[in-house]
């Protein structure tokens, strides 16, 4: 039986797909058979972040509608043999996803994989709800910024009421907070919510802290999940996150400010590399 983990956030642009790609890749690199599914029908992007956009032939909707088998639609990752990608459809509308169809696909994948990572679309509509419905665990991606934190709280509300676990009165979905685009220098300046504040407001466990990093854009430019860049702070922070998801106790890194010169402190800035 695979463990199903949804990567969700409510708000768009906070790093769901970046995180889903990094986490799925990290789990695969650690020897787990992993599949990552793009639920963003109509606006697929996971294939770009994973660098397999030119190998997409069939997609999730094709499988659900019986036009292709799972094995035809699954794309094997170039870099890690344990990793497969199931892309979203670019042309169909969101109604093409059905609860029964998603259940069948997840059930079939469950037999072959250890982890199923569901990359949720933004928003709280059908696609987002289907992505989270069957989840055992949820990674709630949050930026240190008011609208992102509020939307994350909305998503937590949905996870506790509109998931299969909630509806069947089983153990609730295990919720994890993943803070991304964190800038310790701005936190020190008092202009960014600190991680304790976010954790206190949302009242869930922190699974990882990803610093604002130039490595993330560099990785997406190249279509290589940032976790492969093991020299970078973001890559290492995602590797730590994966270890924690696998139950290891890893100390938090990248939460305190770098030393900066007087000029830098006066004029702000100081993104990590």
């Amino acid at each position: 039986m695979a463990k199903i983990i949804v990567v969700t956030s409510g708000k768009g642009g906070v790093g769901k797909t970046t995180s889903a790609a990094a986490i799925a890749t990290g789990l695969a690199l650690r020897g787990n058979k992993t599949v990552v599914i793009d639920f963003d029908v109509g606006l697929r992007n996971l294939d770009l972040i994973m660098g397999c956009e030119r190998r997409v032939v069939y997609d999730l909707v094709n499988v659900i509608q019986g036009e292709a088998g799972l094995n035809q639609a699954l794309i094997r990752d170039k870099r890690s043999e344990n990793l497969h990608i199931l892309p979203a459809s670019q042309t169909r509308d969101k109604d093409a996803l059905t609860l029964e169809g998603v259940e069948k696909v997840l059930g079939d994948l469950s037999e072959d994989f250890d982890y199923i990572i569901c990359d949720s679309p933004a928003g709280i509509e059908r696609g987002a709800q289907l992505a989270m419905y069957f989840a055992d665990e949820a990674v709630v991606v949050t930026n240190p910024e008011v609208s992102s934190v509020r939307d994350s709280d909305r998503i937590l509300g949905l996870l506790s009421s509109k998931s299969r676990r909630a509806e069947q009165n089983r153990d609730p979905v295990k919720e994890h907070l993943l803070i991304t685009r964190y800038n310790p220098n701005r936190v020190d300046d008092g202009d960014m919510l600190n991680l304790e504040d976010i954790r206190e407001i949302l009242a869930i466990d922190l699974i990882g802290l990803i610093p604002e990093s130039e490595a993330v854009l560099r990785a997406s430019n190249q279509g290589v999940p940032v976790i492969h860049d093991d020299k970078s702070d973001a890559g290492q922070a995602y590797a730590d996150t994966v270890s924690r998801l696998m139950g290891e106790d890893v100390p938090l890194r990248f939460h305190s400010a770098q030393k900066r010169g007087l000029i830098a402190r006066m004029f702000g800035g100081g993104a990590r590399r």
Partner: peptide
Amino acid sequence: KKSASVAKERLQIIVAHQRGHRG
């Protein structure tokens, strides 16, 4: 007042309100 603490106060109020409506 630092902007982050303003953000925190505003969020605590709005999140408490949202949770009141949860479920």
